[in-house]
Nucleic acid binder design. Sequence first.
DNA 1: AGGTATTCACATGAAACTATTCTCTGAGTTAGG
DNA 2: TAACTCAGAGAATAGTTTCATGTGAATACCTGT
Length: 411
Amino acid sequence: MWIVEKILSNKIMNNNIFLKHLSSPSIFKDKKVLSSSFVPDQILHREQEIESLSKILAPALKGYQPNNIFVYGTVGTGKTITIKFILNQLKEIEKTKIKTIYINCKMKKVADTEYRLFAQLLKEHGVIVPDTGLPTDVLYRKFFDIVEKEEKIVIIVLDEIDALVNKVGDEFLYNLTRMNSELKRSQITIIGITNNLSFRDNLDLRVKSSLGEEEVLFKPYNALQLKDILKKRIEEGFNPGVVDEAVLNKCAAIAAQEHGDARRALDLIRVAAEIAERNGDIRVREEHVDIAEQKLDMDRVIETIKSQPKQSQAVLLAIVNSVCNGVCNNTKTVLTGDVFEAYQKICAKNNINVLTQRRISDLISELDMLGIITSKIISKGRYGRTREITLALSNEVLNKVRLVLQERFES
DNA sequence: AGGTATTCACATGAAACTATTCTCTGAGTTAGG
DNA sequence: TAACTCAGAGAATAGTTTCATGTGAATACCTGT
């Protein structure tokens, strides 16, 4: 503890403003354990899934190509973590003949297009290709050559594969699976992870048959299982006695309600603890969890809004303005047409070029997907068919959103 | 009254376009031998 | 003659526009009673 030494040796003034933060005992023992991306050395309540996955992948150890796998399960059911865990175990036994690659297809600017996916795959093999300029099939060739040269069994994990397929189609999956028949000395196995249970149904038949050779379903955790998982993480992540049973129960219960999302439970407890620590409390209490729940919600919304492009923000402001001004007399809903009008006004005031209504329509449905607004299509008979838009935000969040938006626009 | 046709106000889809960033290639230019 | 420069052709990508087509049900319009 070099800081303590420094303090003792009086190298730091004893009125330094940071001193009081140092002296308060830390709640955390090892904070990274509480992050949802942490892979623990033991995964609870996934014994069955681990068993079947390892059975499928075991042939790799004997030099055969394992079947391709589809992994399903809603958010926070431990899909990613389990796969990572299994890959780690696999590598522990056999490093020379097996190569594992994990790629998250949703990562912006990393693997969200076919080109970038292959660029990423190449990068994993130590080949850097330019971001643009090359035809995609060149990357495809390069990847093929490298894999062939390596003489390994390559296990490629494509997390959130549905996002990529929705964006660019399933052609690349077909190409990847087809590679195997052309590869002589190496083989590729694909593990596709998705939280969209019906994803497989709208795949090309060829892809469906070759990729869906094996399927593993991850069921949501129930409250008891969540509690176990949390408990273990708490033991590792916090100093003893910091979190009591009631808090644990509460987090598990909230997460269980949200379709057994373990990530949610972890976020809750971590943020609750951060809040407690900042307040100078040495224990995490239930009210901290309440605040954490709100804060998580708020942060999520604000973050997504801030990261939206300007036009999208303008559209959101148009929605917020129209809803708050009660365009549709005192109801809290607005229609696409109202939004477009309000949007045009905002553009005029801010000197932004006005996009077509067609585009605005898309931007509105994007905001819907992000969960910032709720919209449903209604038919008003003779008076047309349109979207009925409602803000999906609590008043508190809404006010914050307004502040953020008004910072960016004159309105 | 009951049935059918219209009509509105957008939704939704597909394709094409724009602008930006970047590679590759080959022609032209330059400097050194 | 090798090395360098530079313009032009192509690609990838994101964000849009243009054009075309779809659509649910309140109303207008008929029809036969």
